[in-house]
Amino acid sequence: MSEIVNCRDLEKTFIKGKETVEVLTGINLTVDEGDFLALMGPSGSGKTTLLNLIGGLDHPTAGIVSVSGIDLNGLSSSALARWRAVNVGFIFQFYNLLPVLNAQRNVELPLLLTKLSRSQRTKNAATALEIVGLSDRAKHKPGELSGGQQQRVAIARALVADPALLLCDEPTGDLDRGTADEILELLELLNRDHGKTIIIVTHDPKAANHAQRTLYMDKGKLVEEATA
């Protein structure tokens, strides 16, 4: 399989007042197409920061992040925004759905950045909702859905533009065990049947068990690798 994510000598530091905080140091990471990778580690170990750099939400202080052969450092903010719209689907811990839009319209959001017609957008959003098993909740607003259902809508939104890479930041962190398992099974299905490459950041070892590969981080470094 060809690699989809390639991080070389990645470093990220933040400046807080007079203090410089090194969040990531010397990260080298390769993720192949079709991988399901879990990033684990204690709070503050740099998991989310690494995920943000791979998703083009932030720039590294040093090193290279390349996704599908594109060096993200070379892209301007607006080019990076366009790149994200096409290449990455984000799934957040607290779903980040827009409360004034119903499920269908939330899922359609990434398609507004494409040239698809309105009817095609509606159709694609309906298909994405069908994949996550929420066709019957299309007209419901987030406030009318359970946590698990909201996360499914968020997964449908991440899927709808058909990106190769799904980045999930604690996707089950706000859910009970049963619902979390359903979400993780859904992610497994997307990886297995739809060929999506998935990187998931989690504290939960049970969540990591659904991944093919688990990487452990501590104090900004990759310290250990486990394969399922």
């Binding site: 998703g55 939400l57 903010s77 607006s78 925004a81 366009r82 790149w83 994200r84 719209a85 096409v86 984000f90 957040f92 607290f94 980040n96 827009l98 409360p99 959001l109 990434p110 950045l113 939104r157």
Partner: peptide, 14 residues
């Protein structure tokens, strides 16, 4: 803030 950031993460421009 979170809504606007989410939109920008999805690819909406500044």
């Amino acid at each position: 803030t979170v809504e606007i950031a989410t939109l920008r993460a999805l690819g909406f421009g500044g």
